[in-house]
Design a protein around this nucleic acid. Sequence first.
DNA 1: TGTGAATTGAGGTACGCACCTCAGATTAAG
DNA 2: CTTAATCTGAGGTGCGTACCTCAATTCACA
Lengths: 341, 341
Amino acid sequence: MNKPTVHDIAKEAGVSLATVDRVLNARPGVRDQTIAKVQAAVDRLGYVRDTSAANLARQRQYRFAFVLPEGPSQFVDTLRAALTEASSPLVAERLLVTIVTIPSHDPHAIVRRLRALKPERLDGVAIMAPETPQVRDAVDRLKQVGLVVVTLASDLPNSTRDYFVGINSVAAGRTAGLLMGRFTAQPGEVLVVTNSLRSRDSVERRLGFDAVMAEEFGHLTVLPTVEAYDDPGRMEAVVHDVIARRPRLAGVYSMGAGNTQIVEAMRRGGVAGRLTVIAHELTPTTGRALRSGEIAAVITQNVGHLVRSALRVLRTLSDRMPIFEAQERVRIEIVVRENLP
Amino acid sequence: MNKPTVHDIAKEAGVSLATVDRVLNARPGVRDQTIAKVQAAVDRLGYVRDTSAANLARQRQYRFAFVLPEGPSQFVDTLRAALTEASSPLVAERLLVTIVTIPSHDPHAIVRRLRALKPERLDGVAIMAPETPQVRDAVDRLKQVGLVVVTLASDLPNSTRDYFVGINSVAAGRTAGLLMGRFTAQPGEVLVVTNSLRSRDSVERRLGFDAVMAEEFGHLTVLPTVEAYDDPGRMEAVVHDVIARRPRLAGVYSMGAGNTQIVEAMRRGGVAGRLTVIAHELTPTTGRALRSGEIAAVITQNVGHLVRSALRVLRTLSDRMPIFEAQERVRIEIVVRENLP
DNA sequence: TGTGAATTGAGGTACGCACCTCAGATTAAG
DNA sequence: CTTAATCTGAGGTGCGTACCTCAATTCACA
């Protein structure tokens, strides 16, 4: 038995092709009774629309913009690479992706860039941007002009974005906590560093981390979070300082960027490999440090996954189809030396 | 600028549509010189074949069979579920998947099933089967009759299969070893259990595990592998026995199935939660045990990944296209309580 | 019962590509 | 220069769906 086509449906339902078409594409001008007849025929024959033919006929183009922060970040770099890598074979499937770069720390500039997106030349937008009221409003505006909007890696929970593709930061922090606790047998202190606690991700990671440490690992004392404010020099200085002053230091939890500096500070302090270091995001730096034993574990999200999931979600939402949640759930990956990709 | 079509290529190259078609589809009867002209036009215009239209015109159907072992195995069950889940939305993309069940322990029956696959009604086969000479020969025969063959989860390295979709067992064992060593601070003994050391996977996992333990974790003594020979009762009895006899037991590495029995034996022995248990494959049982703290970590491969990767590879190879390795590399995932999906 | 509105049918074109035929042009060999 | 072999062009059809037009039918309501 061959795959049924619209013709088969028409025959089966005893209606014309035009009516089948009207029903399938939810066009007006069909009685409920007739709709039901067609639906019944569809169910009976197990008809599934041939997306290839449909896209071809409809001249469908999926035009998406990815809005990513600029500036030196290995994570964004790998994300960008994964994006170009994932989207280039998809031109064959009528997918057009443009990348828009935004300055990370200038909300007004971000808003300007978002306003410059032309809704008539675009179907959807994936955004990775810090959470500020201005950005949130700009996102809401994108929704209002009819675009599909997904947030990527870092969510804007109070906006009207359609979907968030990324991992749960609290759970990521909890995972880091568990590894820190189990990897560090001797009692001691744990340093927590990040660029800024103003970012929601950092706050949530810290929350999860602290919760697990308090619940289960009483032998470790978690020190207050140290912030480096995007200054690599400061990052290295601060970490080096703590290492020098705290002989009982047993672990370091790095919640964000700056891992190169942290490793460097540990080397200078002569404690490289002796502290349990848990970091986020698998990058060239963290990969090397895993290999050398200077970082014990990395909590990461697969950027390839992230990007492909975002593309799938954008496409699905553009088609007003339901999302297959299970497939889009991005895993919190744990990488140690032995399971490096 | 719109996407170039074959018409644009014909115009650009100064040849007819028929010639462009001959070149693009590698049909004979075109001079090298003309081929070069067309290729140049393709490159200049950045032409990419519209796969939707191509598949439509060509009436392409991808007909794949998945050969999976029968019998009670949570891993295979989840794999099967993932397969039906992943393939049902793909009928819209002309993908037809049939599942063939084989008895795990009867090589001759497996061979019969493989011989029953009709190459004229099939484009490719994904196989998960134990490694025996008979099976290997049957796989080679499938290749000879023109099918694309990929091995799934468990490889047949000496066969002529086109591709293996799964994880490196040695690396998986090494990962287990690393976690065992780092999670278990006190000196002691480690029990290693599997159903059978006749399976290549088990041997390789043990290899990797032992290597890491020897290299880095001298405080732990790894006991000889205990085999349960697919007998749940025996599995529970053996593990319970070891627990009773070995007071210095600090960890258990479960390389295969039977995790339900292992957990049960630990409960009966009163050591549940006190031993470091590392197991393979995330299943309902191991998930529950992670939550309850009776298993410390699970090494797993994402079955959804596995299945989607196999489908992609089968399709790509059927089209005689190159495989995008990076995307198909299945990660060795580490799951602890806090990053359970 | 008639009227206007709502519903349905018949038929067409188009999307981009694959694949076919057959005639005409070009080339190489004799 | 002829002949045969090789190459190329022109044109066609069909894949399954979307979307359009226009006429025909049915329906609701007065």
